[in-house]
């Protein structure tokens, strides 16, 4: 069973998350955005992805770890090469994950 405190927590998290996702979608529909904003938007996907990936690869435990024993870094770079050359997302995930688990087990 959920405690009252947990119910409050989940309701609060649900509310703030929805309030980040929905209002812009609902309001921007009514105004037109300035040209520079529209031009910049195509860079949001690569920028967000990079901002998530780079610290996860280079600082998996919270501090900088540039080392051959860092499986996140080694498998991450290899996955990047595979994805760049094949453009195949599913293949990248399967090979990258396999390499990551092997590397961790090996070291």
């Amino acid at each position: 069973m959920m405690t009252a405190q947990e119910a409050l927590l989940v309701a609060g998290m649900a509310a703030v998350t929805f309030l980040v996702r929905w209002p812009v979608l609902a309001l921007v529909s009514r105004v037109s955005l300035p040209r520079p904003v529209l031009d910049g938007m195509k860079f949001i996907p690569p920028a967000v992805l990079t901002a998530i990936i780079v610290p996860a690869m280079l600082m998996p435990a919270g501090s900088l770890e540039v080392s051959i024993t860092n499986a996140y870094l080694v498998a991450g770079v290899a996955s990047g090469v595979i994805a760049f050359r094949t453009r195949n997302l599913l293949l990248t995930i399967v090979l990258g994950m396999a390499l990551f688990l092997l590397w961790r087990w090996f070291w």
Partner: peptide, 27 residues
Amino acid sequence: FALVVTFIGMLAPGLRSRPVIACVLAA
């Protein structure tokens, strides 16, 4: 790591133009 490799797979194929590379380096 599954999430990291998924996002790498989404990002890497697009790294073929200068503005995108600049964006990725800065981010």
